[in-house]
Write a protein that binds this DNA or RNA. Sequence first.
DNA 1: CTTGACTTTTGAACATGTTCAGTTTAGTAT
DNA 2: ATACTAAACTGAACATGTTCAAAAGTCAAG
Lengths: 236, 236
Amino acid sequence: MFNLNAFKNQSTSDAPLSKADLTKAKILEEALKLFREKGFDATTMRDIAATCDMAVGTAYHHFESKEAIVSAYYNWVQVEHLRQVTEYNRSKHSLKQRLEQAFQSKLDIVAGDQKLLGVIMRYIGESEHPLSIFGSKTKELRDEGLQIFKIALGNEAMSTDLRELTPMVLWTLHMGMLLYFLHDKTQGERTSKLGNQTLELLLQVFGMVGSPLVQPLIKPVLGKVKKLLKTYDLMD
Amino acid sequence: MFNLNAFKNQSTSDAPLSKADLTKAKILEEALKLFREKGFDATTMRDIAATCDMAVGTAYHHFESKEAIVSAYYNWVQVEHLRQVTEYNRSKHSLKQRLEQAFQSKLDIVAGDQKLLGVIMRYIGESEHPLSIFGSKTKELRDEGLQIFKIALGNEAMSTDLRELTPMVLWTLHMGMLLYFLHDKTQGERTSKLGNQTLELLLQVFGMVGSPLVQPLIKPVLGKVKKLLKTYDLMD
DNA sequence: CTTGACTTTTGAACATGTTCAGTTTAGTAT
DNA sequence: ATACTAAACTGAACATGTTCAAAAGTCAAG
């Protein structure tokens, strides 16, 4: 779960934290506490400002909007996820272990944050909005997300087509997992099981696709899928 | 595209339209016009009320919220989609033709409505919200959506597993198509092409799955997929 | 026609995200 | 120390979704 120190330590430079950094961190910390307690909509900017002993204007000086606070949270989630996956992949593990860790760690990071995580999905269908997951403004975020699954995939032996497609498939599955989590009434327990079983199934399919019997049949299909995704800008 | 008469004619009973029905239709009509022109957020309830020559309170007497207007629009979309697909399937067509028509007609119905369609996606991650596509409040809407693709699939010969899975796969693909459409800068032209090529690919996969060579290999996988989806309430 | 119950309409008032012109503070150059 | 600048902060004012008590309209029963 979110921790202020972890957030502060994410700073790439080692410049001392400025006053602005501290204020921003404070707002983020208190706002997340309130979002978790009461939900995003039920928490007002006046609540947040009051909790931080400051005027509303100050909060707006540090965050463009109420939703930008959640956006900052999700950036933290992603950096933390990248860190954990990178760390895990410093030692040797099976593909299954690596994929499970990539999925499970994401789930652990957002555990308890259902009330606020849903907000990052709000503009999914509005391409011009700065918080649209599929919009042009968030390409960097998506690329970083892909990068995480590239790391988890490592240099596992597989056909070129599959290697190119898999990170995107994993990222998409992981998005689906997040969506399922948001509707999960068991605090992520069910999501976790679903994730593991889905991965098992995926690995079984990978095995089949790699088998000499199926490979020649499936190869042209994979090629077409890849071409389609690239043609329609769904893949780089 | 939306047409007031089509909306009025959707009434299942043939009771005459009450005054309330007419007022509601008028609000819907004018609101959609404004949403299309200026976008959902840029259109205020005061704009809508003024255009209809009524007080804001009146609009709220007929619609629970601003978003409920978009919800009513989407209900219309779905009824109209069901009508067109049902009509098309009264005469004989190939599976490919039927699926293409099911996808293309949906796209035709929402053509020009990018500015307002995105709003129905806003609460996708908030399970308790009445407009959450995956929430409990909208189960009926999802079931109706599935029904449309069951009709398009008809009684095509295929294995039991595949027959059970396909409507959900098609519905999900169609949701993906809508999402792509919302980000499409070519008024749906690109989406249409992507849809057709995706269907072609899907039919190729169906062909493979049905072939005696692949069937025994893929059957256990399909069985597991089905079981997984049912276990985790992703399918009835 | 009158009454009473129900529906529809009204618009002022409220809640809350956001803005911004002005004020205070912090840091730096002279 | 002083003056200057940029950053941080303030809170009243604004915009807009929503509410609600009261007013107006509708209509069937007596």
